[in-house]
Simulated assay, not measured.
Amino acid sequence: MQWKDDFAHNQRITDMKQSFQDNVCIVTWKWPEGIQFVYVYGFEADAEIAPDQRDLQSMRLFTREEYKANRGYRARLDTIGRYAFRVYACERADGRMVVFKQQDEENIIRFSTGKARIWYSIKYGRAFFSKRKPVRIELNSEVYVAKEALCYVKKEGAFPLNKDDGTAYPFIHDVNPGRNTLPEIEINKNDQIKLFFTDGKKYGEIYELIPE
């Protein structure tokens, strides 16, 4: 296989679309005239590897005949979060595949495969003769979650409305699949705590926080 930087504008892949049918992802695109082969590269949306550094096994050679027979490119995805496919037109020359290195927004489709659920509970201990009370946070996650994704926010007198509505504290440990219990903390008697994503737009597309 050989990458080719210089190719005609009408040899580009365009009009990428994606849908789900019975848990199978279907990707379609507009084929350039005369092109009979493409390479399909699937990857987590924020982890694309540059073409020159990419393992050939990470891409699949796909023919126009297969596309017609299957009415698109079909893949069963066992992942949760943001995913993407990039499609490259290619042609056979001198016994090997020459792949047109198209790196724009026309030959890529990004989408969500669904949200992983994170259930959580916040339990307050009693503090009859103290100005402070113990707090225990427990989480039950469907998947591994990096500690950078979550924080808890403390506010005096009321529950915080968002991660900026109080004092935010980062998680110090990653969250593993299954039940996780954070180290017990102490807060002032009138304080309340709630969990939030550190970046709601980024992590809210991947995970769902659900109070138990």
Rank of each mutant, 00 (worst) to 15 (best):
R74V: 03
A93M: 10
R86F: 14
W119P: 01
K123M: 12
Y124L: 14
K115Q: 15
R117D: 05
S112H: 06
R110W: 11
Y83P: 00
G125H: 14
Y120R: 00
K123C: 11
A84M: 12
R86S: 11
I122D: 10
R132H: 07
V98H: 10
R117M: 07
R74P: 01
Y88R: 05
Q102V: 07
S112R: 09
I109F: 09
M97S: 05
K115T: 09
R86W: 12
E91Q: 02
Q102F: 07
Q103S: 14
A75Y: 05
R126W: 13
E106I: 08
A84Q: 07
A93H: 05
R96Q: 15
A116K: 01
A89G: 08
Y88W: 12
S121L: 01
D78N: 11
A84V: 11
A75T: 01
A116G: 14
R126G: 10
R92P: 04
V87D: 15
R82Y: 07
S130F: 11
G114T: 03
V87P: 14
S121P: 03
K101H: 11
S130R: 09
I109T: 07
R110H: 13
R92H: 09
S112V: 09
F85G: 08
R110D: 09
Y88V: 04
F85C: 08
K115V: 11
I122Y: 12
R96C: 08
A116E: 05
T79S: 01
Q102L: 14
L77D: 05
K131D: 09
K131N: 04
R76C: 09
S130T: 08
F111S: 12
Y83I: 00
N107T: 04
R132C: 02
D94K: 13
I108G: 04
R82P: 00
M97K: 00
G81N: 06
V98D: 02
F100A: 05
I108N: 05
G95K: 02
W119L: 07
T79I: 03
E105W: 11
V98W: 03
R92W: 06
K123V: 14
R117V: 10
F111K: 09
N107M: 13
R74W: 00
T113A: 04
F128P: 09
V87Y: 14
Y88S: 03
Q102D: 15
F129W: 07
A75K: 03
F128N: 14
G114H: 05
Q103K: 13
L77C: 00
R82K: 04
V99P: 05
T113D: 05
D94C: 12
I118N: 01
Y88T: 01
